[in-house]
Simulated assay, not measured.
Amino acid sequence: MDFQAYRDIAWNGVWKQNTGVVQILGLCPILAVSNNIVNAVSLGLATILVMALSNLAISALRNFIPYEIRIPVFILIIAALTTVVDLTFNAYLHELYLVLGIFIPLIVTNCIVLARVEAFAAKNEPGSSTIDGIAMGIGLTLVLAVLGAMREVVGSGTLLSGIDMLFPGAQPISLFGDDYPGFLVAILPPGAFIALGCLIAGRNWLEARKLARAHRAAAIAPDTPAEAG
């Protein structure tokens, strides 16, 4: 597979088929942990690891897995890799692990992971499958990061709250000073739905503008080489 094919796979995962704002998958973790950017990105990185390793493992073993039992085997592999990530967070990032709580183990049941191994990894070679898993994970992490930043800034007037869990001694950024009263709804579940809706609308607007420009360019361009002359 050439470089352009890998590039197309990556772009598909990050933008064209973004799991958060196009496929609208995995809403439970997206809405639950995106109250600040640190929690959101941390869960996104954990998901990238699980998706990349799951895609790689299942692609490498796809010819040895009977079709009739593929789903249980896929879930078993995903569960094993999720457990490794979960224990790693518990060992090295314990405070963050306590904050994220059940949402790291729940990566096992995240439809994003199972959908990609079934739709892509089970049908393609390991290299492209790994790229697909990483790209899909990055796409999800970008959505989580933007969503977390929006909700944190509007809700509490800070950025990078909880950064000391990753880098001891680091302090969050206060954007509006100590007098900012906060906007509680932004960090509550309704705020998550509203912010995600804004992201989906923004992405659709950008795609509509791109399509309109393409249509205008096609209408302006000459129909034949003779007309161009």
Rank of each mutant, 00 (worst) to 15 (best):
A135L: 02
I78V: 12
E125K: 14
T88K: 11
G20Y: 15
V154A: 07
A219K: 06
I131M: 07
A226D: 14
L199S: 00
L96C: 06
V113K: 09
N110F: 11
G148S: 04
R216Q: 14
I107K: 11
I138G: 02
V113D: 14
I102S: 10
I102T: 12
I200E: 03
Q17V: 09
D179R: 06
K123T: 09
R7N: 12
L93Y: 04
L96D: 03
A195Y: 02
L140V: 11
I30G: 14
V33Q: 09
I131H: 05
I75V: 12
Q4T: 15
A201V: 07
H94Y: 15
I30H: 03
V99A: 12
I71D: 10
P72N: 01
P172Q: 06
E95L: 12
P225E: 02
K210D: 12
L144Q: 12
L160S: 13
S161W: 11
A135M: 03
L140I: 09
E118K: 10
R70P: 08
L61Y: 05
D86L: 07
L100C: 02
V41R: 09
L184E: 15
I69R: 06
K210I: 10
A214S: 08
D164H: 05
Q4G: 13
T141G: 01
P189C: 04
N12G: 11
W11M: 14
L53T: 11
L96H: 13
A121W: 03
G182I: 04
L142T: 05
A121C: 04
G127W: 11
G197L: 02
L61D: 03
L87I: 07
V38T: 10
V84R: 12
S59K: 01
I220Y: 06
G191H: 00
P190H: 01
R62G: 07
A80I: 02
I78Q: 06
L76W: 07
I163Y: 13
V33H: 08
I75W: 07
L81K: 12
K210N: 10
L43E: 00
S129F: 00
I134V: 08
V154Y: 02
H94Q: 15
P190S: 03
S174Q: 08
V22D: 08
L160A: 14
P190I: 01
T109H: 13
T83P: 04
V21D: 10
L53N: 06
P66E: 13
G148Q: 04
A52D: 00
G202V: 05
S42R: 00
V153A: 02
V154D: 05
A122D: 11
S129E: 14
R116P: 04
I104L: 09
S59F: 07
A91E: 15
K123D: 12
L196P: 02
